[in-house]
Design a protein around this nucleic acid. Sequence first.
DNA 1: CTGTTAGCGCTTTCAT
DNA 2: ATGAAAGCGCTAACAG
Lengths: 367, 367
Amino acid sequence: MHNFFYFCYYIIITQLETRIFDMKKKITIHDLAKMLNMTASTISRALNDHPKISQETKELVRKKAEEVGYKRNLIASSLRTGKGTTLGMVVPRINRDFISNVIAGAERICREKGYSLIICQSEEDLEREREALRTLLHSRVSGIMISISAKTNTSEHLETLIKEGVPLVQFDRIRPELPTHCVVNDNYRAAYEATQHLIDQGCRYLVHLSGPRYINIYEERCRGFIDAVSRVQNIRYEIVESAITREKGYEVIKQMFEINRYPDAILAASDYSALGAMLVAKEKRLMIPHQIAIVGFANEPFTALINPSMTSIDQKAYEIGENAAKLLIDTVENPSKIKKPTKIVLIPQLMIRESSTIQNGLSDKKN
Amino acid sequence: MHNFFYFCYYIIITQLETRIFDMKKKITIHDLAKMLNMTASTISRALNDHPKISQETKELVRKKAEEVGYKRNLIASSLRTGKGTTLGMVVPRINRDFISNVIAGAERICREKGYSLIICQSEEDLEREREALRTLLHSRVSGIMISISAKTNTSEHLETLIKEGVPLVQFDRIRPELPTHCVVNDNYRAAYEATQHLIDQGCRYLVHLSGPRYINIYEERCRGFIDAVSRVQNIRYEIVESAITREKGYEVIKQMFEINRYPDAILAASDYSALGAMLVAKEKRLMIPHQIAIVGFANEPFTALINPSMTSIDQKAYEIGENAAKLLIDTVENPSKIKKPTKIVLIPQLMIRESSTIQNGLSDKKN
DNA sequence: CTGTTAGCGCTTTCAT
DNA sequence: ATGAAAGCGCTAACAG
């Protein structure tokens, strides 16, 4: 019945026959100057709190400016000074929990320090990523934060930026070979600890659902996994690359079951592939975690809400955003300072939940 | 053991002792003019594809520009023309699934049409919202999209904008009394249909967990609910205001149970309060949906993943973003055009899942 | 078709 | 402590 309306929408035009937006011409420092019988430079200086302007003049100017609703034209200002107050950020997609939290953190810092933030999506595409960088340069941002797309297997576009002198901060998915500031998680450590946790729970046949290993984060997670399992005797393990979607996770684990390989633990590089794996396990009526323990990666909101709740790794998204913004602003504001590239490494947090808690009594199926 | 490191981070300074960012001075049209023995205006015109410039000159200029890596200074350009290429958006929070999808949609349209998008968060606070608007004006954005904060119970700050002639588009949470373009969901209809759905399933004692009713979306959802239940005989219903968090949903329903009121259906204005309600129901060992059916609002990703999966209402976030951006760009590019405020109303989609499917055999507890 | 000139709104020497 | 004047890089009206 309401099917009829799916995927379509109304457009309602209300009656009000008014020109809704009249451009009102803006007041400039010259207007102010005229009003106060001063010159534009005095106004400018007063507004900028220049030391050689008398207190009373400053007061006067500020009051008048407030009164007539003067707003400094930042465009003109930054044309003159060559300094901007806008920063750029390139991310694969905005609508991912991790990313949107990074943005939220970065935006807060930017706001506090008086910068605006322009966001661009690469949509996991190298060409779009290049385009996004061009757009940002075009908008004359003072610096750029970037987390590269899944298809970015080259550094040249970023090298170009560096050569052009654009302050750059990489975060999360980075090209480690570039001499830029970075803010990342200790993915190696996170994977290592998660693996160790599974081993501690008694698991001895582990599968790692990895991502494309030319991306640093997946490579590091993979290494963490390998190093952790390698320290233990009598352990069996497998690594499946490029399994980070729910569909892929489902498929891969289903195939394993079909050829009668039953791992007792899965460490996924993504919560979604972990979810896929969990769904197969449920279909096969395996007990989670007792027959198969599952750990995801990213601590997506759903991991705490499903049944059984899923152990995952929290990536400190908000902090990553904050740190990236701080680092970038610092670089932007001290361009001449000779700097060594700084790398900030955050420690992700293993969130232990039902899907991997075999040892104590916490795990249960309360429906 | 690894507890030791939680909430702290390393800073690693790599050895590389280089000045990583050398500002390289930019090439201007004057430089190009000199190189090609032309004048700056010719260059400008050639680059802007002015009709009265010969094809070969254009080619020549474009080639040279490309060759020496010239990039037009948009700052200067927009100072001169008075037209900018940046739009602003104010949202309560970026890190919410609905919002980040709106942003994603808006960003795509902006990019396609050659605009950049600056995002500001109001963090559900009126004063921050005012500040965000100031920041955007300061950055000289050409127009603003806004979804108001939960605490915004006044319109004056937006009226000021309108008086100043700033193109404005409201979306989702709006102040309907303002003469601006709007992009919204048909919340009334969505709530009405969802309620009807519950009634169709045989439910006769319905509870609506609403939000603060001075915000349009909650008011509309509430009205939809009321109108739907009012058409039916022998029905009992209750409305609880300001219950949109998981905690509040949990608490409210728990209290109802404690005084022995057992509704057979819940329509929540938020997926989170619906989740809270679901958790109480589970604790009480009520069968969902047979003893109590539950419907949420927003179609958060987790709703499809929990057990039982939760019926919810998809809000077409991406489309809202796209439409808002299109509308804003249209307004910005045709400022003199006499316009009536346009309202685009999207039809949300009821996603029927296990938590409300009593009638046919779909609902089950496959673990 | 192309050059000349003026100026967007601001900051910043250099004078006074 | 304030004013005069010169531009930042670009565009556009007016000439030719």
